[in-house]
């Protein structure tokens, strides 16, 4: 028990001995943990976005320009009688163009069409249960009257005339995967740098104490006792780095996040406190791993016991 205090005391004196390198290793650990944490929160936000898109459970069935109105009514009646369907409405070509021109940022694009309208009319289907999107989409696609009026040439391709949340979600996933790979690469780089910094700091600490180490070996201090202070020092740097990262994350959570929510109300940023606590625990563990492995590596190379 007394040796734990001894390790702690020794690691504290190591602080003042190599202040600049100590600060360097703490800051690199802090930054890498902060970036890991921000990516974790970002991932949670993306998951929220994905699930909110999934919750917009509507199916758009595009209809060919030649379709007769009574055919469309027949299909709409059929869909309306399917289970879990909440509402069915019809969007004409003109309405589609209007919607498009009101959402696009390039207002000239409509004028450049020379009075032609390339957008198809569509039947909008709203569902009660998000889980049913797939089955209902299949049922609509296999319904013969719809296959006749769908905007595909071949009635067998009717499924391609349907658009629903899943496709948007897939596209979102492609985006988030790219972001995730970049994030992992960045974090790996930062962890590598933090490793090197810790390694160097512990190396300097070992060099500064080499006389003491020689005497400790001489009088029979156990290997664990000789290594202890350096492990404690690495762990202490990591813990301080993690504490700083958590502090900054808390500031972001309490001050910056509400402002983003106010500025971008459509972005679903509501993240549970429990998730934040989980991320903080993960940061502490990751920091400890970096610190302990960094100092172990330095000891393997520079501390022969």
């Amino acid at each position: 028990m007394s040796s734990i205090f001894y390790f702690f005391r020794e690691s504290l004196t190591g602080f003042t001995r190599n202040l600049s390198t100590t600060l360097g290793s703490i800051i690199t650990i802090f930054l890498s943990l902060l970036i890991i944490g921000i990516f974790c929160v970002g991932g949670a936000v993306v998951n929220n976005v994905v699930s909110s898109v999934e919750n917009q459970v509507s199916i758009t069935c595009y209809v060919a320009d030649e379709a007769e109105q009574d055919q469309i009514d027949e299909v709409m009646d059929y869909i309306r009688n399917l289970p879990d369907v909440q509402n069915v409405s019809f969007t004409t070509k003109d309405q589609a163009l209007e919607d498009f021109s009101s959402t696009t940022s390039n207002s000239n694009i409509v004028d450049q069409l020379d009075g032609q309208n390339p957008l198809p009319a569509s039947i909008e289907v709203e569902l009660q249960d998000a889980q049913q999107v797939e089955t209902i989409a299949q049922e609509i696609a296999s319904y013969a009257p719809f296959q006749e009026i769908c905007d595909e040439d071949d009635p067998a391709d009717a499924a391609n005339s349907l658009e629903y949340g899943q496709q948007t979600v897939d596209r979102l996933f492609q985006l988030t995967n790219a972001v995730r790979i970049i994030g992992i690469a960045l974090v790996a780089l930062l962890i590598f740098i933090a490793f090197i910094f810790i390694n160097n700091t512990i190396r300097l600490a070992i060099l500064a104490r080499r006389r003491e180490i020689a005497i400790m070996r001489l009088v029979g201090a156990s290997n664990g006792f000789i290594r202890g202070p350096f492990l404690a020092e690495g762990a202490l740097h990591a813990l301080i780095g993690a504490a700083l990262a958590i502090g900054i994350m808390e500031v972001l959570r309490n001050i910056v996040l509400p402002r983003i929510t106010a500025a971008l109300p459509w972005l679903p940023l509501q993240i549970d406190l429990s998730l934040f606590l989980l991320i903080y625990a993960a940061l502490v563990v990751a920091g400890l791993l970096i610190g302990l492995f960094g100092s172990l590596l330095a000891m393997r190379r520079y501390l022969k016991v």
Partner: peptide
Amino acid sequence: FKLLPNKTVFENVAFALEVIGKSR
């Protein structure tokens, strides 16, 4: 001699006991 220059006589001798975990 291999003494630690920043420790007193007492501390130098005590160091040998300290690092093998002897009580105060």
